[in-house]
Write a protein that binds this DNA or RNA. Structure first.
Lengths: 351, 351
DNA sequence: CTGAAAGCGCTTACAG
DNA sequence: CTGAAAGCGCTTACAG
């Protein structure tokens, strides 16, 4: 019930007997304030439990933050990556103008050089923060080092990079993801059945983290003392024919009851099974991509383990937003839910 | 590259040769503007594709919107409802002050009177919009009618009310939810097995929409020509002992291989199964509640079908936000994903 | 080291 | 029917 029920900075200025400009200096930790004044203002801020008004802040400030998004380019097997983009834009448009400038840098996930080219391009642009999908390990490490040097904040999505510490990691707990699959598989097979696990990737880097999935997968069966034989293969190929050749050969002397493809390429196997009419072999994969979903609908894929790309993008953007604009603490490790998608629930999955 | 690169309203005013106050009047469809002036301004707005700056709007406006949330009170079997609350508050705090005043009106889901009391209380408060969980059908209809009369916007969450049209419905496609369960069940049982479906609720109203779940459930087996016998029961009871009595009696002459509890009370059955050591009977239920999760962890519940309460709350709030503050079109029907929660993926579910 | 003043893009009385 | 002016809570030159 004070007479002068002033607002934030003004009230601080009044109580401290200074101008709001001085308050602003303290608020932003700028130089040019006498130690004594500074302390006084700081204590008043604390006392008032002052929270700046973000709306006013953004409205008054001319500062525009530049964020870059360094991810795989959209391609038939990964329309996936189109989605985080809209997720981020949605977040932006929802609440008005936050003075953010977003730029996309798409590279080819099967081409190391394109990653280098795009990341170099990005580094020249004087960007504040970047969201990266670390597909190529060493290249990402170099990139991260350059970011640190240039004081660019980076957020990893999808997978982590050993011994590199981003502002935040947004993605699944990879090992646990393997366990979820294993648990589902238990419902699909009989004890003693044979399971085939496939890491299908053109570049070795990715299979690195795919192996963690397999660890989780195998560990589950050990933990639950479930008897089954698991054979796993890294195959560095990525098209129909090569898969067919591999499968033909494999099925010649093995009889898996279930196949687990550790990344988004389950549709390659599904296609093979469909062409050969091998309905009795169960199939589990990852990733909400149209080609996978098509086979899910037809019943050639039983389960898909997914994470919402839109939400992942949103959270990654939010991490940068929190850091630069809201100036709040950012959560270092943000595990995404490990979603189970089936023929019956995929329709509403992206909602 | 104009000399006068003025901002929104100012630029409109300049071009129309009027003051910004007049522009404002047109923008808000207020009276007191000559038809000719109005048309001119309108055409300029269109021409410029003018989008108001929400930040400035909220900052300048003194208007505070009052939203009410009329949901079940937190109780041991539904901590669930505690969560939408934080979801909404999170949405609010994330992007600063939007001039929204949220009030909660918790009723007892087993007590019709408490709903009436709380909804009456709410109606007296001169509220702009309200989020409602329509647990009691007729009472909700009356409430909706009163809202319409008082020009209060209402959003339904969790379930719909026949022939009542809210600003938006946020919740699952109930029939499809039943289908998802049925699909999972197929992995849990053998052909010819017997399935027991239980609608456990104290009040009849709720079981009404639960019956839709059963329709979806049964339809799935018909569609896939899967042979199994499904027995379903509406039991209007809600505690341990009554469930025990029912189960004892039922298991005397029937041998279900799987039990599907259509609402959040699967834990009651789980407890029974655990106490009797009936490990061989599979159990599927709904709702991410600690009591269900506990049994999920122990393996007495195989699957829980859930929807993220936090997201549901967030979306419901967003619907009101869009309507009142952003003044955008609101999506009438917003189906939530039908999530599958297991022992292995529940940990990250709420992230 | 400090302050007065203008401005961000809107809204809101108030005056005519 | 219309406009001039103050203000929302901040930031940003600029002057001293």
């Amino acid at each position: 019930m004070k007479v002068s029920e002033l607002s934030g900075v003004k009230e601080i200025a009044r109580r401290a007997n200074v101008s709001i400009a001085t308050v602003d200096r303290v608020l932003h930790n700028r130089t040019g304030v006498a130690q004594k004044t500074k302390e006084k203002i700081l204590s008043i801020i604390k006392e008032m439990d002052y929270k700046p008004n973000i709306l006013a802040k953004r409205l008054a400030s001319k500062r525009v933050y530049k964020f870059g998004i360094l991810i795989q380019k959209e391609c038939s097997e990964a329309e996936y990556w189109n989605v985080p983009v809209s997720g981020i834009q949605e977040a932006l448009s929802e609440f008005g103008d936050f003075g953010v400038d977003l730029r996309y840098y798409f590279f080819d996930r099967d081409d190391r050089e394109s990653f280098l080219a795009k990341s170099d391009e990005l580094l020249k642009k004087h960007i504040d923060g970047v969201i990266v999908a670390p597909i190529f390990l060493n290249e990402t490490k170099d990139f991260a080092a350059k970011c640190t040097e240039k004081r660019i904040q980076f957020v990893f999505i999808e997978s982590q990079v050993p011994s590199v510490h981003p502002l935040s990691y947004i993605g699944q707990d990879i090992i646990q993801s393997g366990r979820v699959v294993a648990h589902l598989c238990k419902y699909l097979i009989q004890p003693k059945d044979e399971i085939l696990v496939l890491n299908v990737a053109k570049e070795k880097d990715i299979s690195n983290h795919l192996e963690e999935k397999i660890r989780g997968f195998e560990q589950f069966f050990i933990d639950t003392s479930y008897q089954c034989s698991i054979k796993s293969f890294n195959i560095e190929i990525a098209d129909d024919e090569e898969i067919t050749a591999f499968m033909e050969d494999y099925l010649n002397h093995q009889q898996p009851k279930l196949i687990y493809v550790t990344n988004s390429r389950a549709y390659l196997v599904a296609k093979y099974l469909k062409d050969r009419g091998l309905n009795h072999i169960k199939l589990v994969g990852n990733g909400y991509h149209t080609r996978n979903i098509d086979f899910l609908k037809e019943g050639y894929i039983d389960f898909l383990i997914c994470q919402k790309p839109l939400e992942q993008g949103y959270k990654a953007f939010l991490a940068l937003y929190e850091y630069f604009i809201a100036k709040r603490k950012v959560i270092k490790l943000q595990y995404m839910p490990i979603d189970i998608v089936t023929k019956e629930n995929y329709i509403y999955y992206e909602n």
